[in-house]
Write a protein that binds this DNA or RNA. Structure first.
Length: 577
DNA sequence: GCCGTTTTCGGCCCGACTGTTTTCAGTCG
């Protein structure tokens, strides 16, 4: 269910897009874009705000406030409807073709009447773009290739895929003579859940050999652009990788710049300008001095400090309030992988895991965990063939194994299945025998909002359910999230002391970061769980931690960052601290 | 269209690269 905020933000963004196509003033376009982001990220429900309340949203002034009020009253924005009548939806879609922006989209529409991606492809085949000002042979070729790329869709990859590729490239380039430093930056450093392209940054006084090594990498399928400072390639799997090489002394400014996000950087640069400075990837400079004197650029910390800000963790750099928090000293102390004392969701080969109980426990101990819960599936997932007897036998096995692992407390848990009506496997008496119960949705993903909400609420209200596992049940790029009234669910979690899981699997990352941040405002607690089905899956925890950080979580918010006795009190039903 | 620790008017982040043009517009990040 889309929130009013999201729908209104989408409309304002569409207004920005349509305005840029019709040649509207660039600053006005940018103002709409900024407002759209602010509306989407605003904690209050805009449906409940009057004009005065709407104006308190950052980057929303009198004009946009009126448009949102228009949306609240009518469900749409009049100016958007008018522009839609003028510009067919297909023309806006043209701008999603790489290398084709608003100007070219408008040109083909006005000159040739082209108003959809397939029409544009046909126009090129027919040679109708020839002679159009600004369109040469190369442009045609680029557009056709862009369309083909879009057809292959799924152009973003999961974070673990990107991380694997980035690690390989960084390792290879780090070996090149003269390469002083090399790291990945961009959305991967910010730990976004999917990655559209990789940004790799290197420091050297002699970029030539690094550029040469980069384009010669075995993963490279084609070179898109090649220069002294920047080279872009596409890998055999279709992912674009941009390499920037900067002088070593510019490292901090360059890393800050190429980490983004773009919106965060715009805000940072605005601060620089207001202070009479100029920030670029080469450093922070005095804007007034004739020689544009360099002030700092060696480290990110210096750059932020000179602008009156503490260093801001990359996972927060989305211009969603982190700069304001940095200014009033309220940046959160983000939870890290080292903060995690335990893991509350894992499987063994008793159900669908691939490793034995002994191997999973040994791997958990190698992670340095203080406590570790085995939570195999319960009988309602019929294919898992769990029975009461097997569960009880596993409990005995865990008690016996405990003696061999004195440094780590083993917990016997289970992952219950939340049925369509919110019921779970096993009755209260049997459930009471487990140390921890995770309950998750594994089927019936397309219920109505009311049904899905009622279902999750009932699970929360079950006193034996401690954690809701992968709460939205989404699979990134493959399955949509449950359509629940999440604010209602968050209220129930806070009320009943039920934690929400952040499942660390790269194709789940569930709860997603935006919902984590919303849930936190209700006082909900979280569990960052591996959901490991094999020893190797513990490696995914960093992605779950990244997601938690993007949701602004501190160790205080995460029950498996707590000492065991505090966790036990929480599981025992005491009201959350 | 928004905004203000110089401003209620006059600014608004900045640079790299491509492609199409003979000095620059468009796109991208």
């Amino acid at each position: 269910m889309a929130r009013a905020n999201d729908e209104a933000a989408e409309l304002v963004q569409e207004l920005a897009d349509l305005l840029s196509i019709t040649g509207g003033e660039a600053f006005k376009v940018r103002a709409y874009e900024k407002a759209a982001r602010a509306i989407a990220g605003h904690p209050e429900d805009i449906a409940a705000l009057d004009l005065e309340g709407l104006r308190r949203i950052p980057n929303v002034g009198a004009a946009i406030a009126k448009k949102i009020a228009d949306y609240n009253a009518t469900g749409t924005i009049r100016q958007v409807e008018e522009l839609r009548a003028e510009i067919p939806a297909g023309v806006r879609a043209l701008t999603s073709i790489p290398t084709l922006g608003p100007k070219k989209a408008m040109a083909v529409y006005e000159e040739l009447g082209v108003s959809s991606v397939p029409e544009l492809a046909r126009a090129i085949e027919d040679g109708r773009l020839r002679g159009l000002r600004g369109f040469g042979a190369k442009t045609e070729e680029n557009i056709l290739r862009g369309i083909e790329l879009m057809r292959r869709a799924g152009d973003r990859v999961l974070v673990d895929t990107a991380m694997g590729l980035a690690s390989d490239i960084v390792a290879a380039l780090s070996r090149v003579d003269g390469c002083r430093r090399c790291v990945y930056a961009g959305s991967l450093r910010r730990m976004r859940e999917t990655i559209g392209d990789l940004d790799v940054l290197a420091a050297s006084d002699d970029p030539g050999p690094i550029m040469a090594a980069f384009t010669a990498l075995p993963q490279v399928a084609e070179v898109i652009a090649r220069g002294d400072k920047k080279t872009s390639v596409r890998t055999v799997k279709g992912l674009q990788v941009d390499l920037r090489v900067v002088p070593p002394e510019a490292w901090g400014a360059a890393l800050q710049y190429f980490t983004g996000s773009r919106q965060h950087n715009v805000r940072i640069r605005e601060r620089a300008v207001r202070a009479g400075l100029k920030l670029s990837e080469y450093g922070l400079f005095s804007a007034s001095e004739e020689d544009g004197g360099l002030i700092v650029s060696a480290t990110e910390e210096e750059v932020y400090a000179r602008l009156g800000l503490p260093w801001i963790p990359p996972t927060l750099r989305e211009d969603s309030g982190e700069i304001e928090a940095a200014l009033d000293g309220t940046l959160p102390r983000l939870v890290t992988e080292e903060d995690l004392r335990g893991d509350l969701h894992s499987h063994t080969d008793l159900t669908d895991g691939t490793a034995s109980l002994e191997d999973m426990v040994a791997a958990a101990e190698a992670r340095g965990l203080e406590y570790f819960a085995i939570t195999d599936h319960a009988p309602d997932l019929f294919m898992q063939r769990m029975t009461d007897e097997k569960a009880l036998a596993q409990r005995e096995a865990i008690r016996a194994l405990q003696a061999r692992h004195p440094g780590m407390t083993l917990l016997h848990g289970t992952e219950l299945n939340i049925g369509p009506d919110g019921g779970v496997d096993w009755d209260a008496d049997f459930l009471a025998g487990f140390d921890v119960c995770v309950a998750s949705v594994h089927s019936h993903f397309t219920q109505t909002t009311a049904e899905a909400t009622r279902r999750l609420l009932r699970a929360c209200e079950n006193p034996h359910v401690h954690v809701i596992g992968h709460p939205t049940a989404r699979l990134i790029g493959r399955r949509a999230p449950l359509d629940a009234d999440w604010d209602e669910v968050f209220r129930a979690c806070a009320r009943t002391g039920t934690a929400l899981e952040i499942d660390c699997f790269p194709d789940r990352l569930d709860l997603p970061a935006d919902l984590i941040r919303r849930a936190r405002r209700f006082g909900v607690k979280f569990a960052i769980d591996s959901d490991a089905h094999a020893v190797g899956h513990f490696r995914n925890v960093r992605y779950g931690v990244g997601t938690a950080q993007r949701g602004w979580l501190t160790p205080e918010d995460v029950i498996n960052a707590w000492p065991l006795d505090r966790l036990r009190a929480f599981l025992g039903g005491e009201t959350p601290a």
